[in-house]
């Protein structure tokens, strides 16, 4: 049993009278891919927003543990601090790239904090110390290697907003990876992708887990993606956890099937067929 990288305990999020997530507990283990699935409106994105600090949870605890044992209580941290100190990176359901900046600039912006330090908080950079030039070269090399991996190297100097949809999804993922995250949170990375692109995405995510040791937390509707790459699945319905387990267990859980029946019956069948 691997140690948990993320431990969520009794998470509750209310908006006025609406309870979006209620008393949710689960954990994600280091180096694994954990998926959160559930019908539309089940509260998946809300969980993500709580983990990444965009929402302040009403109740509950979210503990992140780094490989060196350092612990962070995310429910008490601001969003940018969670990303910077906690090293939690995320993508968004409706892609949020810096559309008017080039692909390369997007990836350098992701390395902002590293580069800021190297530029002596701008003071060394403005006088042109070699320290900064070196750091920038390293940052570009890192960006280059990630772009190469997702087949976007040729488009490095094009504005991100000009890329086709699938490429934008990949770019958003590698932009998140450029922050060297401990935990990568992906909000429906396969949405809108064609089957071939979805397969590529599967391979990318598996290789990320394997090669960088980054743990992945994933929200996804494509059961094909979820079932194939997840090590562990948490199922939400109406803000509550109704099931948890390996893909095999989830597939055979009657409660999950009931929750999905009528909602995404075909999706479940497709998942069953794929497995």
């Amino acid at each position: 049993m691997k140690a948990p990288v993320l431990d969520v305990q009794h998470l509750t999020m209310r908006f006025g009278g609406l309870t979006a997530v209620s008393d949710l507990s689960f954990s994600a283990r280091r180096g694994e891919i954990t998926a959160i699935i559930g019908p539309n409106g089940a509260g998946k994105t809300t969980v993500f927003n709580c983990v990444t600090g965009f929402y302040q949870p009403t109740e509950g605890m979210i503990r992140l543990t780094h490989p060196d044992g350092k612990e962070f209580l995310l429910e008490r941290m601001f969003d940018f601090r969670i990303a910077h100190k906690g090293r939690v990176a995320r993508t968004f359901q409706n892609i949020r790239l810096f559309a008017g900046m080039t692909v390369l600039e997007n990836l350098l912006t992701a390395q902002h904090n590293t580069l800021m330090r190297a530029s002596g908080y701008t003071f060394f950079g403005i006088v042109g110390l070699p320290v900064y030039a070196r750091a920038e070269r390293a940052a570009i090399d890192k960006a280059r290697s990630w772009l190469d991996r997702v087949g976007l190297l040729a488009r490095a100097d094009d504005p991100a907003g000009d890329l086709p949809y699938g490429a934008q999804r990949r770019l958003e993922i590698v932009r998140a990876m450029c922050t060297d995250p401990v935990l990568l949170c992906l909000d429906e990375p396969a949405a809108g992708l064609n089957p071939r692109e979805a397969d590529d995405l599967n391979r990318l995510l598996i290789s990320i887990g394997r090669e960088t040791g980054t743990s992945i937390l994933l929200i996804e509707h494509h059961m094909h993606v979820v079932m194939e790459i997840s090590n562990h699945i948490v199922v939400l319905d109406y803000g509550q956890k109704i099931s948890e387990g390996t893909p095999q267990e989830i597939r055979n859980d009657p409660k999950v099937i009931a929750a999905y029946l009528g909602v995404e019956e075909e999706a479940m069948q497709a998942a069953g067929g794929a497995g």
């Binding site: 949020r96 008017g100 600039e105 403005i126």
Partner: peptide, 22 residues
């Protein structure tokens, strides 16, 4: 410099900036 790039990124999408630890 990173600060200038962060300014422009901020103009483009503030939420994305926060998600990158800026």
């Amino acid at each position: 410099l990173p600060i200038g790039r962060a300014w422009e990124a901020l103009r483009e999408d503030e939420i994305a900036c926060r998600s990158l630890g800026i």
